[in-house]
Computed example of a mutant assay.
Amino acid sequence: MKNPLLIFNNKGIYCTQADVYIDPWKPVKKAIITHGHADHSKYGHQKYITHHLNIPIIKHRLGEINVSGVVWNESFSINNVKFSLHPAGHIIGSSQVRVEYKGEVWVVSGDYKTEDDGISGVFESIKCHSFITECTFGLPVFKWQPQDEVFDEINTWWQENQDNKMTSIILVYSLGKAQRVLKYLNTDIGKIYTHGAIENMTEVLRTNFNFPNTHKITRETSKAELKGNIVIAPPSAHGTTWMRKMVPYVTASASGWMSTRGARRRRAIDKGFVLSDHADWDGLISAIKATECEKVICTHGYTDIFSRYLKTIGYDARTEQTQYEEDELLDTISF
């Protein structure tokens, strides 16, 4: 590809004409940020541009930064390059970035899912010539069941644990998955308690979203208060002394990785719910087809396998290395 509109270098995805990066992993002068997970929104950039709902998230994580917000489908130009952000459906405030210059259009998807979770915005298909896609779950084995069924399973599990006088602990990512699960918990069953990392992030988002009431677990919280109720905690809390006051408890994880054989056993949890904030195989393929693109660049995930498949169905596909990670790794970071 001669003089592509976007290139990959040692700092991130770079638009030479505009002198701007998208989700750079090293400090740069100007960065367009797709969403608030720590691998896509790094500290140290001189200027940040992102969706307005993502501003409180990255300020909470990064402190006082020079950031401006735009709404979805709002165009802005940098050195004659036209940019706009569009719903990615991954987490609250997550966006795809459309880049246009002299009639050439690229789309950087960031992370995305095609199922509407009710809080993250509905994934928008954008026509383009080149599409940069994640492929975290880029294998045919990954196929998600409808989320309504998963939330019914979670609430049934909680009710059963309460009937057995057990505390339910569900382990989920602090940003994104936690709020998604919280939205659909049945508060008729009992109270919702949270780990500090979950509570702090959710409080940042309450200004714009009507989440159920939660109770942050403190030193004063008693075992009797927790009994029969549900606790939302990050995976990093599992197996720590923080969980002692919840005995007797039952643990669960809500993750796309719960669909793989042995994942629940390796993580030493009692129950696995298959719930991902990323697109499954069918979602990835449908999203790419809807763009009507010619070229696809595959990043972070099963890149080699996924790009080889895309070639068999007629796409000019290749892979690029990035420093983006699967979200669960990020919960070792203190939000």
Rank of each mutant, 00 (worst) to 15 (best):
W157M: 09
M166Y: 11
T221F: 12
E220L: 10
P140E: 12
W158E: 00
Y184H: 13
A178Q: 06
V122C: 11
F131L: 10
I198E: 02
Q162M: 11
E160G: 13
G190V: 06
T136S: 12
A233K: 03
I169M: 03
Y112G: 07
I170S: 06
T156S: 15
T207Y: 05
R206M: 08
E220N: 07
L205Y: 01
E220Q: 08
T156P: 01
S236N: 12
A224K: 10
E220P: 00
I170R: 02
D116H: 10
Y173M: 09
E124N: 13
T218F: 15
V181M: 09
K216E: 10
Q179C: 03
K177S: 14
S168K: 05
I170A: 08
Q162H: 09
S130Q: 12
A197N: 07
T194C: 13
L139K: 15
E134D: 13
P235C: 11
D188R: 09
G110T: 11
N164S: 13
I169V: 14
Y193N: 00
V122K: 15
P146I: 02
S174D: 09
S130P: 02
K227M: 09
D163R: 13
H215A: 03
T218Y: 13
E153I: 05
A237W: 00
H129Y: 09
E153T: 02
D148F: 03
A178I: 07
G228A: 06
